[in-house]
Simulated scan of single mutants.
Amino acid sequence: MTLSRILYLVAILAVGTPLLAQDALSNSVNFQAGNVGSESNLPLPRYVSLKAKEANVRRGPSLTFRIDWVFQRRDMPLQITAEYDQWRRVIDRDGQGGWVHYVLLSGVRTVIVDEDRLVLRAKPSDTAPVRAELEQNVIARLGDCEGAWCELTAGGYNGWAHRSALWGLDPDPFGN
């Protein structure tokens, strides 16, 4: 039995969904990296942002599942790890997550600044002029990434920052 099946069955026992729905869900949900979503045919895992000002985070992919908490930060980056029908399993930068209806999510890419006073530079270079400094936990819109650098827009400022100081994107494919 796979880990995803075990985790799902534990969640089902806590809520009590009929056995047929358990089997359909466990066969449709895809938890392994490098796969594509059964509903969207987009890569899993992948990053999105929260479109809504508030979003209920549920234990399972249906309105009948209990709400565990509510995300309350528009544009917050989230990682989709699984899909089932119109529901997406998401996690935040702390690894906390659950199921959110897909209409509450956006393909607009954002990141969270993980470093205090992150320097935004005019070009992707440590010697480029400084345009601004961003505080930790600021949400910025993500532009292009070139190796170890990503272009960001936040608070009316635009510039380049080290991707290692950001949450909401895959590690640098070049190992920079």
Rank of each mutant, 00 (worst) to 15 (best):
W99P: 00
S40A: 04
W99M: 06
E39L: 03
E146D: 10
K53D: 14
H162S: 07
I80F: 02
D85Y: 14
R66H: 04
V103Q: 11
L42C: 01
V113P: 07
G97E: 14
A161W: 12
P45T: 10
Q32A: 05
S62P: 00
I91N: 14
L42W: 02
S106Q: 02
D126F: 04
R109A: 02
G34V: 04
G159S: 11
E83H: 03
F31K: 01
V48Q: 06
R141T: 15
N137M: 15
K53C: 00
G34D: 04
L63P: 03
L63A: 12
G168Y: 11
K53L: 09
C150P: 04
V113T: 08
A165F: 05
L104P: 00
T64A: 07
K123W: 11
V57Q: 07
A132E: 15
I139W: 08
Q136I: 15
W149P: 03
P173V: 14
L134G: 03
Y102T: 02
Q79H: 01
F31A: 13
K123Q: 15
V108W: 00
H162D: 03
I112V: 15
L78V: 10
Y84N: 01
F65Y: 14
F31N: 05
D172P: 06
R59L: 14
R46L: 08
F71Y: 14
D75P: 02
G147Q: 09
V119P: 00
A52T: 15
A165K: 12
Q86P: 00
R88H: 04
A148M: 06
G37H: 06
L152C: 12
